[in-house]
Structure formats: C-alpha cells, structure tokens
C-alpha cells in the first residue's frame, strides 16, 4: 500500500500526472478515488474489496475526467485488458496514461463491508483467473498474491444451459431479462462501452426499443453481447452494476468461449493483439452455413 501511495505522490508532485485514479476507503467499503493533490495520496488503498474496473474512467466520453489532466490509473490484471482495449480502439493514447499495475489475489463480488475473501465472497470471475499479473503497466506494485479462493463455476453453468432444450434455455433467459429495467448501468459501467451514442439510444431508426419491455430487453441483451464479442475483458462490472441481478457474466463468458473456440482469441492486455471481430481468416469455420 505504501509503495502505491508513494508512487502516486511522486507522480503528482512531479507533475507527471494531474490525477491518480485508484481506490480509497468509503463509507460502504472500497470505492473509486480521484487523487489530484499529492498530499491526498495516502488515501489510496488496494485490497480484495477493490473490485471496480477503473478503466471506464479513461473513456474520452468523460470530459470531467479529461479536465483533471493526464491520468495515472491503478489496474488489476483484468482491468489492464480494458486499458489495452481502449488503446486498441484508439480511445486512449499510450503516452497519455500512466498505468500502475497491482498484483491481485482475487476480489470480492461486493466491494462493501470487511468480509474476508472466501469461496463464498469471491467474485464469480476470479477463481482460476490467469490475468492476475498485469503486463501492460509502467509500474507494477505489491507482492505476488495467492490464488483466489474457490473454484470456477461459470463453465459448468454454461454447460448446463447448453444441455437444455432451446425452449428451456429461452425460458431461462426470458425470466432473467424480464427483470431488466433498462437502466443501462451495464453499459455505463463498462469500460468498453464508449460510443458517443449507443445504438441502444439511436432513434432514427430505433432498432432497440428503450422501454423495459420483453421485446426491447431481448434485443438489447443480444446486441450488447454481440458488441462485446472479442472486446469484453471479463471484469464483471456489468453484472455487479446490474440492479436486477441479471447474470450477464454468464453471457459474457459464453461469448469469450465462442471467440476462443472459433477465432483462437482470448482477452489480453497486449494492445498489439488485434481484436477478432473486424478481422477474418479464410479458414474460419463455417459449419453453420449451407
């Protein structure tokens, strides 16, 4: 923690950056922090409650952030993949951001409270994580961390759904999507949803009905999933932000499986690896095409 705070202090006092985006202690556990004064660097923390992916604050569509000057951002390994995504899609220039990587031993599903990290409290995506060491970083701080507790659960859940009949799967997802209130929290929190105007808000024509209605909900969630193909970094923020507890992580995980299987692509914090959608191979599988 000291190392992180010292680094932030140096970066701010030397004028290298105008703001350090990290986490701090809040009234309900860890929360994002925007340190602009070197003297406040001691507020910075990093522990298993620092679930949030702060890369979303790098989006150029957040002008209030831009006003704070050049940013340093604290990233976990999974978050670094989002920064790589923003670099890949020319939203951020590498020289315009200082990346401080932190070594991660898994985070809690809920950043509030002081519960220890256990198989019960750990975020769904963490067990079995292979991205705990950030590579895309100017500085990496902290000691190596132990493996996150618990075992991966999502793949088993996906296999279970895949084994169902189509109508059963339909019923399952309809029940989930029925709770959607179209608050767009999943989109707002997502570091990769940086469009000027989301297609979900397009009105001429309106492809996706924006009121919470089964038809629009379905269209929205299909489209969101499709737009995340090969772009989602599996930070789990959409699911955490969802007030209706829709298992978006399950859908994201499914898509990650599809692009891994078909295009041999896995989310990475190497920005030079091209995204799979927008590219093609002559030998892409086409078993679904007559």
């Amino acid at each position: 923690m000291k190392e992180l705070q010292e680094l932030a202090r140096t970066l701010l006092s030397s004028g290298t950056v105008g703001v350090v985006i990290g986490w701090e202690e809040g009234p309900r556990g860890a929360r994002p922090a925007f340190i602009t004064d070197a003297a406040d660097s001691s507020r910075l923390i990093f522990d298993h409650r620092c679930t949030h992916n702060l890369a979303t604050y790098l989006s150029p569509r957040r002008p209030h952030m831009a006003r704070l000057g050049k940013a340093a951002i604290v990233v976990k390994g999974c978050d670094a993949r989002a920064v790589a995504g923003l670099l890949r899609e020319t939203q951020v220039k590498r020289e315009d951001v200082v990346i401080i990587g932190v070594r991660c031993g898994g985070v809690a599903a809920d950043p509030a409270g002081a519960k220890p990290l256990t198989a019960e409290t750990v975020a769904e995506r963490c067990p079995g994580c292979t991205a705990r060491e950030p590579h895309l970083a100017d500085h990496v701080v902290g000691e190596a961390q132990p493996e996150p507790p618990g075992a991966p659960t999502r793949d088993a859940r996906i296999a279970e759904l895949d084994a169902m009949s189509a109508p059963k799967r339909w019923a399952f997802w309809q029940a989930e999507f029925a709770r959607c209130i179209r608050c767009n929290a999943c989109r707002e929190v997502c570091p990769m949803c940086f469009c000027e105007r989301c297609v979900g808000d397009k009105t001429e024509p309106q492809w996706l009905e924006s009121s919470p209605h089964p038809r629009g909900n379905f269209a929205w969630h299909v489209t969101r999933a499709l737009h995340q193909a090969g772009r989602c970094v599996d930070c789990g923020e959409c699911q955490r932000a969802c007030p209706a507890d829709i298992p978006l992580g399950l859908l994201n995980r499914k898509i990650a499986g599809i692009v891994a299987d078909r295009f041999d692509y896995r989310a990475t914090d190497d920005p030079t690896v091209p995204a799979p959608i927008g590219a093609f191979s002559m030998s892409d599988r086409q078993e679904f095409i007559l």
């Binding site: 996906i158 189509a166 059963k168 799967r169 859908l251 898509i255 599988r285 679904f288 095409i289």
Partner: peptide
C-alpha cells in the same frame, strides 16, 4: 461469416 458465427451461437444460447 465471423459476425454471424458469433450471433448464431448467441441466439442459440439464448434459446432461439
């Protein structure tokens, strides 16, 4: 082909 490979699988996963 890439776009619809993904779309097709997503629709299937959602029960179409």
């Amino acid at each position: 082909r890439r776009r619809f490979a993904v779309f097709n699988e997503i629709l299937g996963f959602l029960g179409v």
